[in-house]
């Protein structure tokens, strides 16, 4: 127990930034737009969050800035993919390079500086439940918000009218257009919100998780988020599961390093990426067998009203 509880709590903390990013990307991809630039967006969000927290002293302002930065940078991707009908894979890669480059450039001279971010607090009553309390309810506010967000999005996507419109646009833009929905408008909205959530994910890393700025500090979490979206089969509940699984592996890996096992560090560091690949393969096999549903039908396809498919 003495080992298990801190491990599980660490898994939640480590999975939370990825969770924000995955939830955002689920919204984006549900609308039919693929944004592979999560890694770049997280880095931009991480720097914006760090810089604003450092200059204003308020971690909340920092996280708001991280969201805004994510939205602003995603605007490029949205314009190219939705208005211009550009290749979404290449645009996403460009976003990764651009975001990584810009954050590194802005962050020069701040590397390793620390800030005072958010601290964890215990939720009364819920936090007193044995096992569950210390694992789930001894965290910072952003973790609690992510719990609510998972539930809210799960309800929104599947149980509300706007959520249905969102899914309709991602599955069949032509029919949605005929129904009078603005395909471009809906895609813009969810692509930008999704980008903003990735910004928050980065902000969480710098403002809460590490409370400092390091160039390239996401170290592939954005790509793992893209993989976890596939794992989640575009469902917020499964997204939470996948992210905490990843967080668990990350926490395990760090704990083993700290405990000084005989396993060399590079092999431990490799673990999250290896597991992601294994899990992704497993999910794809299940999809092939028809056990799991696939991606939104028009994912990655630009929509132009006057063209036929």
């Amino acid at each position: 127990m003495d080992i298990l509880i801190p491990m599980l709590a660490a898994a939640i903390r480590s999975g939370t930034p990825v969770l924000y990013s995955v939830l955002g990307e689920i919204l984006t991809e549900r609308s039919g737009v693929m944004n592979l630039g999560l890694e770049g967006l997280m880095l931009v969000g991480a720097f914006a969050g760090f810089a604003v927290t450092q200059s204003t002293g308020s971690p909340y302002a920092g996280l708001a800035a991280a969201f805004l930065a994510g939205v602003l940078v995603t605007l490029i991707h949205a314009f190219l993919c939705i208005t211009m009908g550009a290749n979404q894979v290449v645009s996403g890669l460009a976003l990764t390079m651009f975001g990584g480059g810009m954050s590194g450039m802005l962050g020069r001279g701040h590397i390793g500086e620390t800030i005072k971010g958010l601290s964890p607090f215990r939720i009364p009553i819920l936090g007193d439940i044995p096992l569950i309390g210390p694992v789930l309810f001894h965290h910072d506010i952003m973790v609690y918000i992510s719990y609510i967000l998972v539930a809210a999005l799960g309800f929104f996507i599947f149980r509300t009218r706007p959520g249905m419109n969102l899914r309709a646009v991602g599955e069949n833009p032509r029919a949605s257009d005929a129904m009078g929905l603005s395909v471009a408008g809906i895609r813009y909205f969810y692509t930008l919100v999704g980008g903003g959530l990735s910004g928050i994910a980065g902000g969480y890393l710098s403002v809460v998780y590490t409370q400092m700025w390091v160039e390239g500090m996401t170290s592939g979490r954005g790509w793992i988020a893209v993989a976890l979206v596939i794992f989640s089969i575009w469902h917020p509940f499964r997204a939470a599961l996948g992210c905490y699984l990843f967080g668990g592996i990350d926490a395990l890996q760090m704990r083993m390093q700290a405990a000084g096992t005989s396993i060399p560090a590079p092999l431990l560091l490799m673990l999250p990426y290896l597991m992601t690949l294994v899990v992704l393969t497993f999910i794809s096999i299940r999809k092939r067998q028809g056990i799991l549903l696939g991606a939104p039908a028009s994912l990655g396809n630009p929509f132009r009203r006057e063209e036929r498919e």
């Binding site: 490029i76 190219l80 550009a86 290449v90 460009a94 990764t96 975001g99 590194g104 450039m105 160039e215």
Partner: peptide
């Protein structure tokens, strides 16, 4: 100019963006 290598990465990203835009 003591600029990090990421400045090049940023320009590379922008080149790719504008190539995509130009393709249209």
């Amino acid at each position: 100019m003591a600029l990090p290598l990421s400045s090049v990465q940023m320009i590379q990203g922008m080149i790719l963006f504008s190539i995509l835009g130009g393709e249209l």
